[in-house]
């Protein structure tokens, strides 16, 4: 499965990954319109920063996804084939249980319309996720990892 990792040494904390994540998940997918005409969606990646140290963090697509185990609506599941942790946005009722139980702080409330939780979906419409492609310093990279063997889930 695809997993995104960060290189702390070269991240300069510019937060372009957050911006491009917001654009990718906006209604218009246009950077100017996203921030000038729309209510921008929350970034699904967060630049963790303190002084000179920074790195970007988004959903880790855990082998043991507590967000999925906690979801009271059955809206989060692990894809059998890819191992990706997928959220069915239609089913989500915005109860924020996953916001509390993802101990990486990788899920946030999206308050633009009906309450929905938002997390990294690895950009299903793109070859390379927006944050990875747009990082000017190659501080984000994708690794193809083997998934833990799963039986129907």
């Amino acid at each position: 499965m695809k997993r995104i990792y960060a290189r702390e040494e070269v991240c300069i904390g510019c937060r372009l990954c957050e911006i491009h994540c917001q654009v990718e998940h906006s209604r218009t997918r246009n950077i100017i319109k996203t921030f000038k005409e729309e209510v921008p969606p929350p970034p699904r990646i967060n630049v963790e920063e303190e002084g000179p140290v920074s790195f970007a963090l988004q959903c880790r697509h855990c082998d043991e996804p507590y967000c999925a185990y906690s979801c009271i609506a059955g809206a989060i599941y692990q894809d059998e084939q890819t191992g990706e942790v997928i959220q069915d946005i239609e089913k989500c009722i915005g109860c924020w249980t996953c916001v509390l139980t993802c101990t990486k702080g990788a899920i946030r409330p999206d308050l633009r319309g009906p309450r929905k939780a938002a997390k990294c979906d690895l950009c299903p419409d793109r070859e390379i996720p927006a944050c990875v492609e747009m990082c000017p310093n190659d501080a984000l990279y994708i690794v193809e990892e083997e998934i833990k063997e799963t039986v129907p889930g």
């Binding site: 967060n46 924020w96 916001v99 509390l100 139980t101 993802c102 101990t103 990486k104 702080g105 990788a106 899920i107 946030r108 409330p109």
Partner: peptide
């Protein structure tokens, strides 16, 4: 409630 999980992780 943003990032509540980070605190839960520290707690756990």
């Amino acid at each position: 409630v943003e990032r509540a999980g980070i605190y839960l992780g520290l707690m756990r």
